[in-house]
Design a binder for these strands. Sequence first.
DNA 1: TCGCGTCAAGAACGGTGTTCGTGATTGCGT
DNA 2: ACGCAATCACGAACACCGTTCTTGACGCGA
Lengths: 278, 278
Amino acid sequence: MAARGERTTKNETAPKAMPGLIPPAWASPERDEGGRSGRASRPALSREAIVDAALRIVDSEGYDALSMRRVAQEFGTGAASLYAYVSNRDELEDLLVERVVGECLAPEPGDPETWQQRLKDCLMGSYDVLLSHRDVARVLVGRAPFGPKALANVNAMLGLLREAGLPDRIVGFAPAMLGEYLTGAAIDEQAWQMRYPEGPESEKERWEQVADYLRSLPPDRFRHVIDFAGHMTSGELSEEPYNRFELGLDILIRGVASYREDGRKDGTGGGTATGSAD
Amino acid sequence: MAARGERTTKNETAPKAMPGLIPPAWASPERDEGGRSGRASRPALSREAIVDAALRIVDSEGYDALSMRRVAQEFGTGAASLYAYVSNRDELEDLLVERVVGECLAPEPGDPETWQQRLKDCLMGSYDVLLSHRDVARVLVGRAPFGPKALANVNAMLGLLREAGLPDRIVGFAPAMLGEYLTGAAIDEQAWQMRYPEGPESEKERWEQVADYLRSLPPDRFRHVIDFAGHMTSGELSEEPYNRFELGLDILIRGVASYREDGRKDGTGGGTATGSAD
DNA sequence: TCGCGTCAAGAACGGTGTTCGTGATTGCGT
DNA sequence: ACGCAATCACGAACACCGTTCTTGACGCGA
């Protein structure tokens, strides 16, 4: 359907072992030093390599810099060459999503004792993965998580929630909702980081600046905004590792857990979701 | 700050009464039939009119069709003419967001008795507003809701949650989270509608198609996905007005409510958020 | 050695956001 | 009443974008 190189079925596990940045072996414009091997015999272009390059560009220059021409430039060629391996920019983005989602670890049964904590760990790890790839989360919006890797994660989540004794309706719906929250939170956080591109030590200062703006609003309208400016900007969360995303996750998981049908079957019956409640 | 023609304050209500397409009164190169009024005295272009046109385009052709040239075409002129009133495409989108958010009604104190229901009503109304403007929700992602209209809504939400007896941390954080969920859910729903652009009577059929795809996956991996395919696609929610968005909202509000500090002060102490629980 | 089929990729097409310069128009000062 | 200066609309241009068409070089079988 897509292009020619799709049915290769063999090399798709080859670059799996490369976690970080890739040595620019195939990025060098002339690799004919091997003695005229010709371009057709060793393509250097492949779906994997193209997705690698795209992710590298997003990592280093951001999603706005991603374009067919820019990806092709990474291989020292023109954009037209990509269309032999990728039918479309949209398909490239699909592959990019699948690639990034593959870095997110699915919750494994039994690691922490409560399902709430396992869910939290999985999602916070995914959050870190998304943020480690700059604004790659923007590629996720509106894309159903139906690739193999994404579905594997969804499958694991479903198993987790199923064992927790939740109604089927909630089990089936929660993964989509958690994924939506994950994506939205990552995008928002990245947008803030982008707006104030100073060093990471000014994190607090950045929020304080926003809070000051909110406090400068006319007090007759916006009374509550002024009063809660500190809390809205998360300057008051304070506990070092406890950030906005985690708080939202706690809220969400508490909501899900409130539908539990029988209080027992798994520990922590009361209702507090994660222990970091107060 | 922005441009010159901003302070006209008079003619900005003129084109308000035209809901549909505009009679090409100001599009005609010579409209001097009114007696030489000239272009400066009645610009026909204004920030309001430009935002009107942009929203009209999104409504009728979708966000992908929105461009400076397309907006300018609505006035029978070139894209350059817009830059006197709008400094940027980004600023135009800011104004568009503010415009749409202005259509969303803030929760008024006292309408339904419980704060949960008031919150739900407000957000479901906003959801309908967003979906009524096609995929306009895509413009909202990554944009902090800090325009006057958006802040007014946030202010009202804060007041609502404040009276509900929630911890300050939760009060300050919940509006952002609810807004995030609202945007994400609207985008996803619209993306699904776009992928299957058939009539609205095939809503059920569309979900059933997706469920069938999920059920066709290899059963050894994806066991849970297959089992929950029906619930994942919301085919089983069934109750006519109870849709995916509402279920998510209930989950979210339950999570928020679980942080209430003293059980009384407002009705419905138990924990079920809205009554449509099970 | 010749010819053929394959595939990389340059050039081109229609689109985008944005800027610059020009030319018409208007209101004001005289 | 006239002319000038300031204003402002907007066509043309620039540098991009995604995508397609066509060319042409290459390896390989005959």
